[in-house]
């Protein structure tokens, strides 16, 4: 079957099988290798890509479902070199093996687009589905906090805010 989608701003027309998974098409057909195969069950987050700005598990999405959608991987963030978030992660030495890094960065990117002033709890929640077996997360959370815009108002004003 024929599908078309945009990946990192580039339109693609492809012939795929209904049983093809999105992760395999992105990695093996289009050569974008940042989404990683981890658990293959949606638990680890290594295969994360953004679809229309929202993080999804590309191991649990058929390529056919991507027809007409706008996809982005971590490659889209660094056209002009590492962006602010990536630089903060480098400064904090936040990754070791790096297998989880693309997924973590995309999950944090989605969070910051939705909530530019996240609390630590919101940062932890946003990356809770991205498993890292090297670092213990602290440096990752610190780096996201480094680039998050400061919370607009201190705790007193947030108390009555709607969740």
């Amino acid at each position: 079957m024929k599908i078309q989608f945009t990946l990192n701003g580039t339109p693609h027309d492809l012939e795929v099988e209904p049983s093809d998974l999105l992760i395999d098409v992105v990695r093996d057909r289009l050569g974008i290798k940042s989404p990683k195969r981890g658990c293959g069950k949606g638990d680890c987050g290594a295969c994360t890509v953004l679809m229309n700005g929202r993080s999804i598990r590309s191991c649990l999405v058929l390529a056919a479902e991507a027809d007409g959608q706008d996809l982005a991987t971590v490659e889209s963030l660094s056209a002009n070199g590492p962006n602010d978030l990536q630089q903060a992660l480098i400064r904090r030495n936040a990754f070791q093996c790096g297998y989880c890094a693309p997924g973590v960065i995309l999950a944090a990117t989605e969070l910051l687009a939705r909530q530019p002033h996240p609390s630590e709890e919101e940062i932890r929640e946003a990356i809770a589905g991205n498993l890292c077996r090297c670092t213990g997360y602290e440096a990752i959370i610190d780096a996201v906090r480094d680039v998050a815009k400061p919370t607009r108002k201190p705790a007193r004003a947030r108390k009555g805010a709607k969740r």
């Binding site: 949606g42 987050g45 994360t48 679809m51 929202r54 993080s55 999804i56 598990r57 649990l60 999405v61 999950a107 989605e110 969070l111 929640e125 946003a126 809770a128 589905g129 991205n130």
Partner: peptide
């Protein structure tokens, strides 16, 4: 809904 799986799964 806040505690179902993770954001990436809840988005789908």
């Amino acid at each position: 809904t806040e505690w179902v799986a993770s954001r990436g799964v809840r988005n789908r």
